[in-house]
Amino acid sequence: MSTGTPGRPRTTRTKKTVLAAALAATVGATLTALDTGSASAAATLPRPDHIVVVMMENHAYKQIIGSSSAPYLNSLAKGGAVLKASYGITHPSQPNYFAVFSGSTQGITGDGCYSVGSMSAPNLASELIAAGRTWGSYNESLPSEGSTTCKSGKYAQKHNPWFAFKNVPTGSGHTFAQFPSDYGKLPTVSFVVPNLCNDMHDCSVGTGDSWIKNNLAGYADWARTHNSLLVVTYDEDDRNSGNQIPTVLYGQPVKAGTAPTAKYNHYDMLRTLEDLAAVGKHAGKAADATDIAGIWN
């Protein structure tokens, strides 16, 4: 008796089963790719050991990049990356600080002093802490570590949004005198905020440029050989350039001489910091933002 005929249905069913399984796997992989698109993008970023972000004040791209008044910042741009289309979110200053720290202006529209510990929204510091990373801010002219004063000499609370959040330890707000000389002891991510003179708000471009050189050139040089990153950016422009601001990135993870023309803002910067530190989350509008691309080794 021939066994060929009875075998055909079984062969057909086997082929259908294999094809169905292959189709299901393809669809599943596609859906997974869609669901984890941001994670895949983040995976392409380097993982610096330390990131230091310096916030400067009230200058447009064209006032800094290419200016003879800012030789040190331009040397960092040449040896690292400069974003040719980087933008603040709004005016005046304070909402921009909240934007780059928490992915939202948190309803703040002015420069007045906020209520300390009044907010609980996710932010860069709370995400770092939850992910087992470390965070700190170094605030020039802050009277003492953890001080929540509104104003003190050239210190201004409006440039230090972290004190507004109850999910950020007050003690993580350090004075700039506490910035470690052993850079390996720096947190995973830290913000450096010069005072109202040295951030170029009240004093000249040259004054601020010299301050960065005198206080952070050591870290910048160290970062080139220790898998670390320096970011220098501005809160807003001078109100005459469409809020286009200078943003420079420098360190071992950065390709020297890169100058991407893609448009980025403070929410994109926050998302990039979150993904560089691999916190696995995005605060506020950083969830819909874009990682800075085209500058990484």
Rank of each mutant, 00 (worst) to 15 (best):
V53R: 01
Y183Q: 05
T207W: 02
A20W: 08
G88I: 01
A22H: 02
S141R: 13
T188S: 14
I212Y: 10
T188M: 08
I129Q: 06
G242T: 00
Y264T: 07
A131Y: 08
L34T: 11
T134E: 05
N243I: 01
Y114D: 12
G117L: 06
L34V: 14
E140G: 10
M56C: 02
A164Y: 03
K15S: 12
T36S: 12
V193R: 09
S38T: 14
C150Y: 15
G146K: 08
T258M: 12
A277Y: 10
S38L: 15
S69W: 01
A22R: 00
G28L: 03
K151C: 12
Y155D: 13
Y267C: 00
R271K: 15
A217P: 06
K154Y: 11
Y87L: 02
L19H: 13
S172D: 15
K16N: 15
T148M: 05
S120C: 07
R47Y: 03
P92Q: 00
A20E: 04
A287T: 09
C113L: 02
E57W: 00
K151D: 13
D202S: 13
L270E: 10
W296M: 01
N297A: 10
A77W: 00
F101I: 04
Q178L: 11
R224S: 12
P253D: 08
S38N: 11
I108S: 06
